[in-house]
């Protein structure tokens, strides 16, 4: 029992450093994936890997507001959509540069997050969940009626984005490493944000908004800023998803996607950043594995979700801890 109390007594820096370590291990595993896939002669792994990395970016961005700001946004798939359609629409006008496409995605996402966030943040709890969901659906229906880009059916990309004028991202390996590099950079950014004064104010608001207001912080401004940052980061994930699939469709923005993003964050343990990355890996691998076994994988995935919530409230991380503690005791 004695060692169970140590984490509480340890200074705050300890678990943070552990999380960075966990992330570094994950990144290292990712970096080793393409050579392994090449050795196995199965390039499909690299494409799945890119997809996982892109969702990891989105899940981490969501964790920034869900874990550190207690804002359960059920409309984050909209930002994935903005990212994917920024690629599709700009490239149809001959703008293939990935930086310009990302900038456009961020701009649109920032505007959308600013407006919908300002309205959503006037409410809390259940209202917030439902309103973000409704705004997500609004964006979804907008792109469904966008007949110039295929509407419901989606739109195939003529080519992937270019990087500094070169078409190196056409290579699956290059795209994989570009996505990985972005994930690492954004993880570092998130890590810095969480550790900054801004991040601590955000966490303080999560714990007790009234008290934060009493000592002179306006919760609304900090939450809105975090909401916008998170939305913009999620749209970057969308840019890579569009390139990975070479296809965009409103399916990227359906509310199921938003739900899956929340699942990823919770699976890995909320408010840990590296957990969101691990959660994305776990959720997508589980999806792939179940999908390979049965056509009705959703049934089993849903069952897994319900059981996880009922019996392991802290996600996979919590489960691992439980098992580890039990092992230590015996």
């Amino acid at each position: 029992m004695a060692d169970a109390t140590i984490p509480h007594a340890a200074p705050m820096r300890r678990p943070l450093a552990g999380r960075v370590k966990a992330a570094v291990v994950l990144f290292a595993i990712f970096a080793a994936l393409p050579p392994v896939a090449a050795a196995l002669d199965d390039p499909f792994f690299v494409l799945i890997g890119t997809r996982i990395l892109a969702y990891a970016i989105a899940a981490m961005a969501l964790d920034l507001i869900l874990g550190y700001g207690a804002m359960v946004s059920f409309g984050h798939a909209a930002y994935l959509g903005f990212g994917t359609y920024a690629v599709a629409i700009l490239s149809s006008y001959g703008v293939h540069d990935i930086f310009l496409q990302t900038a456009a995605a961020i701009l649109v996402s920032a505007l959308f997050a600013l407006v919908t966030g300002a309205i959503s943040l006037r409410t809390r709890g259940v209202y917030f969940i439902m309103i973000t969901l409704a705004f997500g659906q609004m964006a979804f229906f907008f792109f469904i009626s966008l007949s110039a880009y295929g509407g419901d059916d989606g739109y195939g990309l003529a080519q992937r984005s270019t990087l500094l004028g070169s078409d190196m991202l056409e290579n699956d390996f290059a795209l994989f490493y570009a996505t990985l590099a972005t994930l690492v950079a954004l993880f570092w950014a998130c890590h810095r944000i969480v550790g900054s004064r801004f991040g601590r104010v955000l966490t303080g608001i999560r714990e007790n908004p009234t008290r934060m207001e009493a000592i002179g912080y306006s919760p609304f401004r900090f939450q809105l800023a975090a909401f916008v940052i998170s939305g913009c980061m999620t749209s970057i994930a969308g840019v890579f998803l569009a390139n990975q699939a070479e296809f965009v469709s409103p399916a990227f923005m359906s509310w199921h996607r938003s739900g899956e993003l929340i699942v990823m964050v919770v699976l890995g343990g909320i408010g840990t950043l590296s957990g969101a990355i691990g959660g994305a890996v776990a959720a997508l691998l589980l999806e792939e594995a179940l999908g390979a076994l049965t056509e009705h994988w959703r049934l089993w995935f849903g069952l897994f979700l319900v059981l996880m919530v009922l019996y392991s409230p802290n996600g996979i991380a919590g489960l691992v801890k439980q098992v580890a503690n039990r092992g230590r005791k015996s």
Binding site: V72, F74, I129, G259, I262, V263, V266, R298, L299, F301, G302, L303, F304, L305, V306, M308, V309, L310
Partner: peptide, 9 residues
């Protein structure tokens, strides 16, 4: 949200 999302699936 998670549990009922699972129920939907």
């Amino acid at each position: 949200v998670l549990a009922t999302f699972g129920l939907v699936m």
